[in-house]
Amino acid sequence: MLQHPENPTNTFSNIVEATKPWLRGRTISGVLILVGHLAFAYHFVLMLLKFGRADGVGPTLLAKPESAAEASS
């Protein structure tokens, strides 16, 4: 929209400046994703190092299913 023809006075540097808050937002969301990936990588390494559960009580689920028959990962 900033580059719309009816906006001829907008300089390129104006447009670049205007994107800055959004780019900051992206970095913040990127940090969130990085945290997720680190958690995932840590979890994965734990599995590789054989810290995984082998107690036979079923899969690791995010919540308790209504019936045991449904249990599946």
């Binding site: 958690a39 599995m47 054989k50 995984g52 899969p59 690791t60 995010l62 990962s73």
Partner: peptide, 12 residues
Amino acid sequence: REWVSARLIKIH
């Protein structure tokens, strides 16, 4: 082996 922690998966 099963995944260690449901909490880590949730965080992920």
